[in-house]
């Protein structure tokens, strides 16, 4: 597993300017590029769309990181940019005819009465919509824990949050998502 520099060091290097900025930016993409990619692709369900959105996200990161004050963790800040960019993109790209769409990110297991009549596509869409209703920090925790399957210790470093707080945050996120999905299924 690649050892990446700490976020604070990356941001500090970026703010030095000149070649340091580009070096730091490369470190950011190397460290978070794949996570942001999967976050976006889970929603756009297509590589080309994901590529476009991710490029826009990274441009915004490059343009605005010098003004980043560290009020939130670096990943949380980028998660917010990626989420906004993805939703904006989806608003503009309503038509998807002729585009290859990824397989659903969720597969339904047998045994849950509410899910018996559901398709994988439908439940995947509901999950995506449910995550987007979560507060930013909670959504970021859910992204890293559920989709990225990171350990709490790793998430703790990325989000500058204690593991106990992360467990509580993830638990609440799951509850909200379950309520959202079941509420949608029952209507």
């Amino acid at each position: 597993m690649t050892k990446h520099p700490e976020d604070d060091d990356i941001v500090h290097l970026f703010k030095k300017g000149g070649n340091h900025t580009n070096t730091a930016f490369n470190q950011i993409v190397a460290k978070y590029g794949d996570i942001l990619y999967r976050q976006i692709r889970a929603i756009t369900k297509n590589h080309e769309f994901t590529n476009d959105v991710l490029q826009n996200v990274l441009v915004k990161v490059y343009q605005n990181l010098a003004k980043f004050k560290g009020d939130s963790a670096l990943y949380t800040w980028m998660y917010r940019i990626a989420r906004n960019e993805t939703l904006n993109f989806l608003d503009k790209e309503k038509r998807r005819t002729g585009i290859d769409i990824d397989e659903p990110i969720l597969e339904i297991m047998l045994g849950h009465s509410s899910l018996d009549s559901m398709t994988s596509e439908k439940i995947s869409d509901l999950l995506t919509r449910a995550v987007n209703t979560l507060p930013e920090k909670q959504a970021a925790v859910f992204q890293l824990k559920y989709f990225e399957e990171l350990k709490y210790s790793e998430i703790s470093k990325k989000l500058n949050t204690s593991e106990g707080a992360l467990k509580a945050s993830f638990h609440h996120a799951k509850q909200k998502i379950e309520v959202f999905i079941l509420d949608q299924l029952n209507h």
């Binding site: 930016f25 490369n26 993409v29 190397a30 590029g33 794949d34 990619y37 999967r38 692709r41 889970a42 590589h47 590529n51 991710l54 490029q55 990274l58 441009v59 490059y62 990824d102 397989e103 659903p104 990110i105 969720l106 597969e107 339904i108 297991m109 047998l110 045994g111 849950h112 009465s113 509410s114 899910l115 439940i123 999950l127 559920y146 989709f147 799951k174 509850q175 379950e178 309520v179 999905i181 079941l182």
Partner: peptide
């Protein structure tokens, strides 16, 4: 049932490009 919902969902794998894709993306930006 609400508490068990996630136990009945299996997460699929999202295809992710290799490192060269991200290197090139960073260079482009």
């Amino acid at each position: 049932e609400q508490k068990d919902l996630f136990d009945h969902l299996k997460l699929g794998k999202i295809d992710t490009p290799d490192a060269t894709y991200f290197d090139q993306l960073a260079k482009n930006v």
